[in-house]
Amino acid sequence: MALLEVTQLHAAYGQTRVLHGISFAMEAGSITTLLGANGAGKTTTLRALCAMVKTQGDIRFAGERIDGRATEDIVRLGIAHVPDGRGTFVNLTTEENLRLGAYTRRDGEAVEADLERVYGYFPRLKERRAQQAGTLSGGEQQMLAVSRGLMLRPKLMLLDEPSFGLAPLVVRELFAILRAVNERERVSLLVVEQNAALALELADHAYLIETGRVVLSGTADEIKRNDAVRSSYLGY
């Protein structure tokens, strides 16, 4: 059974329709990426999964329908959304940001352990644990956003443009950790990226979205070899 199964998903902001019947699925434990140009509907798809935009269509998580539920309840199922723009609580400290990630959990001791675990992934955050999160650098805030997601102990993590605005070295570091999280903790990842080369390196499955529809899908290797993708998105 697929972990996440989306069928004929439509979404609109007011009068402006953005998604025109998107369908895709991802397996538990996989890393799947949604590729596409600016404005294709990638971010909206992620927002739709968390009920942050009005939708029509069928969304199933672990076989259960989740469309129509409130964002707060979807999070409780174990879906962590690392949003576009990072969603930092800028006036709270780094550690308070992380503790908020575990807000819905009731296993206090395990939360403390997880805190140390994410500090292990990102030692820089530990150095800045008492610092106002708004003063962190862009890369640090992205690490914080991913860490905040991890504090939920999610089954599925939605990542919106994790590489955006980061130096190449930082991106490399971040993606290595994402891979480790996927392998060691069996967290499935759904990654939205404009940087297709980067995303295809990380992912094992990919969907190509154009103007609110899926136009191509396959394993990352198949997509990489597709001529149209190569010329339009990979640039070689």
């Binding site: 942050m52 409130a70 707060e72 999070v75 969603g87 930092t88 800028v90 006036n91 819905t104």
Partner: peptide, 14 residues
């Protein structure tokens, strides 16, 4: 958290 950033707050389940 809810006072300063409602959207992010919902995303952590508040």
């Amino acid at each position: 958290a809810a006072a300063q950033n409602p959207e992010s707050s919902r995303l952590v389940g508040i």
